[in-house]
Amino acid sequence: MKMNFKKELQLKDSSQDCRTAVCCNICKSEKLSPLFYKDGYQIVVCNDCSLVFVNPRLHENCLKEIYQSETFENLKISESLERYRLRLKLFEFYAGIGRILDIGCAQGEFLQVAKESGWETYGIEPSNDACKIAQNRVGSNIIQSTAEDIEFQKNYFNVVTMFDVIEHLVDPQKVINKIKDLLIPSGLLVIETPNLQSKTAHRIGVKWSNLQPKGHLYYFDDYTLPTLLAGSGYSIIQVFRGGETRPLKLINNLKIGINSRKGRFLYYCLSGILNTIRRIQGTEAMTVYAQKNDQRV
């Protein structure tokens, strides 16, 4: 069913003059059906590719103002150290150690660990407050900017990460394409985002805590996110349903290197088993590892 939300929706809050209607970001379809109405925002599903998103939503300029003024406390990172280090080992396994760009790097906790582990680190963060904290932690390679406005030389990064970022983007497809240009051939893109197919999301629907339409503009699952990436020139390596570092932690406990033949075999087996279990459990988050397809440059 094609809907003209500009005409049909009665916007009920003070931000109604800062809204814009959009088509589907994956397939550009305008055939949309309503799913939820929450906090004054309509959440719709694309009838052609099943992408779920807010429509109409806050205009890009309004969102920039919100994110630039967001404040952060300088948090300690000790509880996340092990997970960060294991993640970096996985990145090295898939793409080799080198340059890494964290989009939406917040206070730079992850990049601090990456720098200490030998990576050349870069970060993008829209919040002025968080950007200053990250610069103090990591250095001048932290830039205050949005993902849509990033500018680096082509074929520069081994790895680009977006942790809990893609759901906030105004134009995910545009950003995904930009990142492809920044990655070296066979470079790695890692995206973590809430999973719309989680059991909690299905059970409580509009009350799901990740359903935050003012800032969460898109809601992906393990079909729509790989579809977006594949259509933009990436090969999907793995879709993890929560805790992608758990298999590597088990291998480390056995004192087996992941780069050995036995280590690689165990890693792929354990990842498959745990992913199957988590698919049944319906975990809240998913992490997609995607590789830039080789191409002549």
Rank of each mutant, 00 (worst) to 15 (best):
M3E: 14
N4E: 09
F5G: 02
K6R: 08
L9Y: 12
L11T: 00
K12I: 13
D13Y: 13
Q16G: 03
D17K: 11
C18K: 11
V22C: 13
C27I: 09
K31T: 05
P34T: 02
F36W: 06
G40I: 07
I43H: 03
N47F: 05
C49L: 02
S50C: 09
L51N: 11
V52R: 15
F53N: 06
E60G: 12
N61G: 09
K64Y: 07
S69H: 04
T71L: 07
F72N: 02
E73P: 10
E73S: 11
L75H: 12
K76E: 14
K76Q: 14
S78E: 15
L86W: 04
R87N: 15
F91R: 07
F93M: 11
I97C: 15
I103K: 04
C105D: 12
G108S: 12
G108D: 12
Q112T: 12
V113W: 04
K115V: 08
W119N: 03
I124Y: 05
P126M: 05
N128H: 13
N128Y: 12
A130I: 00
C131I: 09
I133S: 10
N136F: 01
V138L: 07
I142Y: 01
S145P: 07
I150T: 02
E151H: 12
F157G: 10
V159F: 02
T161N: 05
D164R: 10
I176S: 03
N177Y: 12
D181A: 01
L182M: 04
I184D: 03
S186A: 12
L188K: 01
L189R: 01
T193Q: 05
N195E: 08
N195Q: 04
Q197I: 07
S198K: 02
T200A: 15
H202D: 03
I204W: 04
I204F: 04
G205K: 00
G205V: 00
V206L: 07
K207R: 06
W208M: 03
S209P: 13
L211G: 05
K214F: 04
G215A: 05
H216N: 10
D221E: 06
Y223S: 14
T224W: 10
T224A: 08
L225W: 13
P226F: 01
P226G: 01
T227S: 14
L228W: 01
L228G: 02
G231T: 08
S232Y: 09
Y234L: 06
I236A: 00
Q238K: 14
Q238E: 11
V239R: 01
F240Y: 09
G242R: 01
G242M: 02
E244D: 12
T245D: 11
L248W: 08
K249W: 13
K255L: 01
I256H: 09
N259L: 08
N259S: 05
S260W: 00
S260T: 02
R261A: 15
G263A: 01
R264L: 13
C269Y: 11
N275D: 05
I277E: 04
R279D: 11
R279N: 14
I280T: 07
E284S: 10
E284N: 09
E284R: 07
T287S: 07
A290E: 08
Q291G: 06
Q291D: 05
Q291V: 03
N293F: 08
D294P: 13
Q295A: 15
Q295E: 15
V297D: 09
V297G: 10
